[in-house]
Design a protein around this nucleic acid. Structure first.
Lengths: 142, 142
DNA sequence: TATTGTTATACTCTATAACTATA
DNA sequence: TATAGTTATAGAGTATAACAATA
């Protein structure tokens, strides 16, 4: 039994993007399997590294999840020893920072993720990649 | 607190695609909210319509989920009265078909989904959309 | 009043493993 | 032996609602 996409599905750009995302995430997940970390959590780790002192609510906004979900995510990174909660700008707020172990680990994991990304985009020229990024950036209602 | 994507994240095509997917799925979900059906389940419904008589395992393959997950998904569509399980090509197998109610409903829902898709791609010309689809199709290891 | 973090709870989606009927 | 469907169970990931502390 082989299933074919009909023209209705093929005409939906959202469907094409979702299929591409599935493909990319699956490979990224495999590339990161040795670290037992999902691509989404690595994204969080990188965001914290590049925005030291961020609070959890802001991290959640950047990841399109609410602060309760963000907290559970941060808990995992703290338990791993890669992130620490320091006193924030006021007494309600945490300032998130990578630990030194986290700094080291994120380099290794990012390297693995980059290799996946490069492999998956190997059929595209630099110009095509630039075009793809530009067109993706035009999606949405502005 | 505003979080910025650093250059490492921005350089990852997988990250760009995931952000685009999040954007598209969120709008599609809103467009379908009146039908209480997720975009993924509508995709399943369309696949069944365009491949009448498919079995659940094949449907799962097309959706990148296993047959156990596919079964739960089909259960929901059957409970809604939109899909029925008919006797298949042998006694182990179901043949999935849309009910007449399902046929009617899928047209309405697909219309709502198309409106979302059109709105989200309104900033792109027909040529740009064709290019986007072509470049997305080049992703992966061939 | 509004915001941050937290906790408890629940829902969706998916997977694994085992079972059965059939091939 | 292999495959399709099924069932039970579990694990991510997310959300809502309520609460305490702080602003």
């Amino acid at each position: 039994m082989k299933i074919k996409e009909g023209t209705d599905l093929q005409a939906l750009i959202g469907y094409r993007i979702q299929k591409a995302d599935l493909l990319m995430v699956a490979d990224a997940r495999t590339a990161l399997s040795g670290f037992a970390l999902s691509p989404a959590k690595l994204t969080a780790l990188i965001l914290i590294r590049d925005n030291p002192g961020s609070d959890q609510t802001a991290l959640g906004r950047a990841l399109s999840i609410n602060r309760s979900s963000a907290m559970k995510l941060v808990n995992v990174l703290v338990d791993r020893g890669w992130v620490e909660r320091r006193p924030g700008r006021d007494l309600r707020t945490n300032a998130l920072h990578l630990t030194s172990v986290g700094e080291t680990q994120v380099i290794e994991m990012l390297d693995a993720l980059r290799q996946s990304d490069t492999r998956m985009t190997a059929q595209l020229s630099a110009e095509e990649i630039a075009t793809l990024v530009r067109l993706l950036g035009k999606l949405g209602t502005r």
